[in-house]
Design a protein around this nucleic acid. Structure first.
Length: 455
RNA sequence: GAGGUUGUAGCUCAGUCGGUUAGAGCGUCAGAUUGUGGCUUUGAAGGCCGGGGGUUCGAAUCCCCUCAAUCUCCCCA
């Protein structure tokens, strides 16, 4: 038999890793709760229809599809073979696959809202911490199974909600002590730019090119724009757009003038101004940056868009989100606007690990281990363990008779801070030896006082 | 989907120009130590050199194929 493996891009997590992951997980969850979001979980798999066409052509290719069961049944043979021909052409058919692993948490949430909107009291704020799957090629900071931590609110068009999410981002990264910049833009501004360029049809191409600015530089971006066969003035317009600099309000002012001829673009500038102004009165620990090059790939955003970048680490975005004013419309329910953000748990972990930001205190637990002299002590030791555990103290003992030497080494390796030694002498006296492994201090106390001593 | 790098002990890695029985450190286990961990010290176990094929008297080493990991581009959290 060959050695067992796990699928590409997936991982097993050991105890030390999980403690750190839980630390991030719990911090994010706690912040969501503080903001009044309610928990929600949705299935790992969705109907393929629910997911297809929501993430763009590129996204569709990255959805993990689940093969239908029972394809081998003889009476289906002809249908299945016919359907498979379709698959070979790059099409999906219900005969072969009708379910898929979820690709993100936003679309399943929209599906949930569309199914339940009559029961929900709007605005509805939910948070969701669950794994998602993408058939991407794994590399640094990119996995095929990873956790997203989403908070969304639906049923409000208020820009105050947008500003609230800036505060939420700021709070989470403040609590994690991970320095980031919060980038914000507005889809309407990008649409306005395309309008000014007389190339509304090519909005996506333009934004994809602009998005690469910090990676390939302005000349290369303008080169790409030039190749889109847009009106002659378009390259200059984009050049001006990308040259905007200064403070957030300076940038908004300049772009406001540049896009004055576009009603949509002007609306976007005004929205962004409102959000930025609100955020500035509240102040953020992490810098809020108006970033007109921020595009984000997902098609369904209509207003504000966010992206988070960690400072001091070469890592893609560790969070993103934005406003979508008609997401449930995709599922036949019109008129429910929403906005939401996501935290990439795995990337946040990678950043914090690289910057060594995990606080030792938060990861260590107070644990007590009993060392004993053999079977004669077992019943006594177990009685003491029971008392401690009822008090919420993590307590364990060595399940076999062994030399103290060995038990000591075990306790140390497993991270027990305190050991309690029980032998025939102690049992007779009703005492025990309590030793602190980090200081080496040892004292004899009455067993009856143990729980209080450790508590 | 395109390209680069790397696969040797549980882990991190040496291994010369192709040449005898493939090494080290860490870790594991046992002893030094019959009621006291970390330090020290002695010893042991542990390998189809990723897999397959080829060249050669002879391959961990050279060539081809394949698998896996990892990174870059595309795209994304």
């Amino acid at each position: 038999m060959s050695k067992p493996t796990i699928p590409q891009g997936t991982r097993d997590f050991d105890a030390a890793t999980l403690r750190k992951r839980y630390y991030i997980f719990n911090t994010i969850k706690q912040c969501f709760e503080w903001f009044g979001f309610e928990p929600l979980e949705t299935p790992a798999m969705e109907n393929l229809d629910t997911l297809m066409g929501k993430y763009g052509d590129e996204g569709d290719k990255l959805i993990f599809k689940i093969l239908n069961n029972g394809l081998d049944r003889p009476e289906k043979r002809e249908k299945v073979q016919e359907a498979f021909e379709q698959v070979l052409q790059g099409k999906n058919t219900k005969e072969i696959t009708e379910r898929a692993l979820r690709y993100d948490l936003t679309i399943p949430f929209a599906r949930f809202v569309a199914m339940n909107h009559q029961q929900l009291t709007l605005p509805y704020k939910r948070y969701q911490l669950q794994p998602v799957w993408r058939a991407d090629r794994p590399q640094k900071g990119r996995y095929r199974e990873f956790y997203q931590c989403d908070a969304d609110v639906v049923g409000t068009e208020s820009l105050q909600a947008d500003a609230d999410f800036v505060q939420l981002y700021d709070l989470v990264f403040t609590k994690l002590n991970l320095p980031v910049t919060i980038h914000i833009n507005n889809r309407k501004i990008l649409a306005g730019l395309a309008e000014i360029c007389e190339a509304s049809e090519q909005l996506t191409d333009i934004t994809i090119a602009i998005d690469k600015l910090d990676k390939i530089g302005k000349p290369a971006v303008l080169e790409q724009i030039a190749q889109l066969s847009l009106p002659v003035h378009a390259v200059d317009t984009v050049d001006n757009f990308l040259s905007v600099s200064g403070s957030n309000s300076d940038k908004l002012h300049t772009v406001g003038q540049l896009l004055a001829a576009s009603a949509l673009g002007t609306e976007g500038v005004l929205e962004l101004q409102t959000i930025v102004a609100l955020s500035e009165t509240l102040e953020t620990k992490n810098e809020l940056i108006v970033d007109f090059t921020l595009a984000r790939g997902l098609n369904y955003y209509t207003g504000a868009i966010f992206e988070i970048k960690a400072i001091g680490v070469a890592m893609g975005s560790i969070g993103g989100g934005g406003r979508y004013n008609d997401l449930t419309g995709l599922f036949g329910v019109k008129g429910i606007a929403g906005i939401g953000i996501s935290f990439g748990l795995d990337r946040i972990y990678d950043c914090m690990e690289e910057l060594q930001l995990f606080p030792q205190q938060a990861l260590e637990e107070k644990k007590v281990m009993f060392l004993h002299m053999g079977d004669a002590c077992t019943s006594f030791v177990m009685q003491q363990l029971k008392k401690l555990r009822l008090q919420g103290i993590i307590a364990d003992y060595y399940h076999q008779q062994a030399k103290l030497d060995k038990q000591f080494k075990y306790a140390e390796r497993k991270g027990f801070g305190i050991v309690v030694i029980i032998g025939p002498e102690e049992m007779e006296e009703g005492t025990c030896q309590v030793k602190n492994l980090s200081t080496g201090n040892q004292e004899k106390i009455a067993v009856s006082a143990l729980a209080e001593f450790l508590g």
